[in-house]
Amino acid sequence: MSIDASPANSPSNEFSGPMVRFDKVRKSYGSLVVLDNLDLEIARGEKVAIIGPSGSGKTTVLRMLMTLERIDRGVIFVDGEPLTSMNRNDELVPADAKHLRRMRGKIGMVFQHFNLFPHMSALKNCMEAPRTVLGLSKIEAEARGRELLSMVGLGDKLDHYPSQLSGGQQQRVAIARALAMRPKVMLFDEVTSALDPELVGEVLSVIRKLGADLDLTMLMVTHQMGFAKEFADRVCFFYGGRICEQGPPEKIFVAPENERTRQFLRACLEAT
């Protein structure tokens, strides 16, 4: 199976630095500082797993990158360009709608609770945004939707509505829907935590396949340590709004340096 995953809007002279860069980003809700001076670089095609205890700010990182949360301070660069601000006369000003939409086009997100459109079939879910946002014709959008849905193993469920699908199937539709926009970066926020245990495998194997077949940068928050260990190029352990420790999975899972990391991994092991 061959999927053309190169973004439709890729310029010929691509920026060759990191795909995503957080530069001293700070985020708070009222007086609660959720992320403090976060620095994080993610290379092109890199697969990064984010782990950490509840409330450590993992979801917040992804939501900021998807522009679902405002940031207080600092800059996020995607593909070399600031995400929520832009250069005007050598000054960084808040981004206008046009800039935001162009930047969002580079990013796709899969949610913990799927957020499929309940009034549309699986295929229509995948066709909606390509048609209205990318301006694809109905035929093109449908071809793309069919191809992606069969890639996630749902070629026979095209006309099913979300309520007629299992959780695992719904989540795979959500993945296909995000891919249909040809993003460069894919964000996965605990995409298996709302699923029954026996459905986790089918979703993870789809993600594994994306990693192998497509040239995507992936950022995933996960509690599946086994999956993170086997799949990720790098693991970031978040604690109290900071990256407490990061490195290749062999190091983090086998020989963590930080005491907190050790505690967290021990707790995870005991839970399973």
């Binding site: 679902l68 939409r101 499929l116 945004a129």
Partner: peptide, 12 residues
């Protein structure tokens, strides 16, 4: 979540 999905899909 529905609104957030539309943002993630870059819809206006």
């Amino acid at each position: 979540g529905q609104w957030e999905a539309t943002v993630a899909l870059n819809m206006s």
